[in-house]
Design a binder for these strands. Structure first.
Lengths: 334, 334
DNA sequence: CTGAAAGCGCTTACAG
DNA sequence: CTGAAAGCGCTTACAG
């Protein structure tokens, strides 16, 4: 391993002069030395030791990306896409991305402090522990999709409630009167609750109803199907809390011989690329994942540069993408 | 920040004794001190500083995961899934995962050396630079899907050639006689070439042929469609080098009014979860991504524990998954 | 079983 | 413009 000392000896100067050149503090070094030292650095392939730098300067250049969950969290396309944009952007800013999949709150602080991360971005639900995490880690912490009531909170979210509203409205406009809401058991978070609330409120404001037994969050998709197809009041319109769920639901309903959208109309959430390729193409609520990722990083760096900046909770808009999975019952034979 | 020194002072011992406890070298410390020190560590929430540890012990506990590409590399489900399994497994082994998206060879060494990574796993094509990378980084380096001729190489690959063979054989058995091969322009790698070769060889061994103009790797999917539908000898069987490509191809063909599999039969590669949900369900060549990821990590740690271990090139099997996107022309009206 | 000393590779803060 | 000294938080290697 080549060190500052090696370069210094070769150049006949002190390590400080080399350090200045490495850190491009050119105004503090003679042109002659800058040139000489840079050429030696290139010839020897010197790479600064980040650990040493981090230890002495208290600046690690590490951004931690903390994702809730442990198993296959990147099989969820939403997480994979977010992570992809974030890592890319972090690199472009000259920082390093360290990725942690985490279930237990205490691990968060451990990882952050262990590497002296300068900031962190959270994907998933950490609401219950946000205060403690903030308490223990005095660095910029950017949460996503949080519904925590903590006042001082940097968060990038989307208008989940409006997503539910848009879905309900679209169903109602198309003549649907009996609704269901489907989510995975594992994803019972505020985020999902908001989508449900927007959906339910809109239905009720229209003088219709979404009863408890039409809200399905069982362990197995099979159980969902079973219940969905045997409800006392048959349902025609299903709002799934995520495209993933919608697509699997659609697949299994089709396998049982049901037609989409004739027997069941479905709306998803996320507008994943995949939703365009299934058949029928999935009508869904879209969120701009790239924008969300970029905002997250940009705000993180703003706070890195100015710790006095007030926190901000940014809510991005959502949009209904009409495709083929919702039947218009107004024109359809009654 | 709490340091060893703080704990030592509180316990009335030297930092060495605390260090021994932190590193669980319990046989070297009195039971009384172990207990006292551990309770102080818990009370104060001490977290060891990994940079300091890395600097003094030359052991960083960092595994770098290097993914070729810069833009949206995790939008490719294969990459996302591999990365997910790898990060999870790395964590379970008590190491930290640092993720780098990289285009230029020189960045590899820079990142590896900068953080003193103890090992690295590569996703994507680095064949041209493997020798240089190995030369500059004397740590265990695990490549995936490499076709490099470097003899000393740790690699986990799959039998791409066989994948091509299986696809061709399936088409031929189902009465197809005119074939095409489709890949994205960006993915012209040995990996893809092997899939093509297996496909082409099998076709030719059956006394049929795959001419140059039936091998399509244009920039835009639209151009592919255009050429595919205007070939002098009309094609009925298309082998796409990846499920991604197959699914997009299928989508666009359907939009133009072609029927799958009646007008065009299609086979993909990877067996992504998505391939089950499209309509018709995609017949594809499957590879076991989880197994691949686990092998990669396991071999990495074996070499970490015993640097003298010989390198190994592990090739996993592939399998044809028959679904609905291939028409049996033997029974179909001729 | 315990600890004092030296050092990992760098930067900060200061003196000149 | 340059450099000697001290220190970041830990571990290694040694002495007792």
């Amino acid at each position: 391993m080549i060190t500052l000392k090696d370069i210094a000896k070769e150049a006949g100067v002190s390590v400080m002069t080399v350090s200045r050149v490495v850190n491009m503090r050119y105004s503090e070094v003679s042109e002659e030395n800058i040139e000489k030292i840079n050429s030696i650095i290139n010839r020897l392939g010197y790479v600064p030791n980040s650990s040493a730098r981090s230890l002495s300067s208290k600046s690690s250049k590490i951004i931690s990306i903390i994702i809730q969950g442990e198993n296959n969290v990147l099989e969820t396309p939403y997480n994979a896409t977010m992570l992809g944009y974030i890592v890319q952007h972090v690199q472009e800013c000259g920082f390093n991305a360290m990725v942690h999949f985490i279930n237990e709150y205490s691990d968060v602080t451990k990882h952050l402090q262990s590497w002296n991360a300068e900031g962190a971005i959270f994907l998933g639900t950490f609401d219950k522990n946000i205060l403690q995490i903030q308490e223990n880690n005095k660095i910029p912490l950017v949460f996503t999709d949080s519904y925590s009531s903590v006042r001082q909170l940097i968060n990038i979210g989307i208008d989940d409630y409006k997503g539910g509203v848009l879905a309900a409205r679209h169903f109602i406009e198309n003549g649907h009167r009996e609704f269901a809401f489907v989510t995975l058991h594992t994803s019972v978070s505020q985020l999902i609750q908001q989508r449900l609330r927007g959906f339910k409120d809109t239905i009720e404001n229209a003088g219709l109803s979404l009863s408890e037994e039409h809200i399905l969050e069982p362990f197995q998709m099979e159980e969902t199907i079973q219940r969905l197809t045997t409800l006392k009041k048959p349902v025609t319109a299903i709002f799934a809390a995520a495209d993933n769920t919608a697509i699997e639901l659609m697949d299994q309903l089709k396998k049982k011989g049901y037609r989409i959208p004739e027997d069941f109309s479905i709306i998803g959430f996320d507008n994943l690329p995949m939703s365009r390729y299934v058949s029928p193409q999935l009508t869904t609520i879209s969120q701009d994942i790239m924008k969300k990722a970029h905002y997250a990083i940009d705000i993180l760096f703003q706070h890195l540069n100015d710790p006095a900046l007030p926190t901000q909770n940014i809510i991005l808009d959502v949009e209904l993408i009409k495709r083929e999975s919702v039947l218009d019952r107004n024109t359809f034979a009654k």
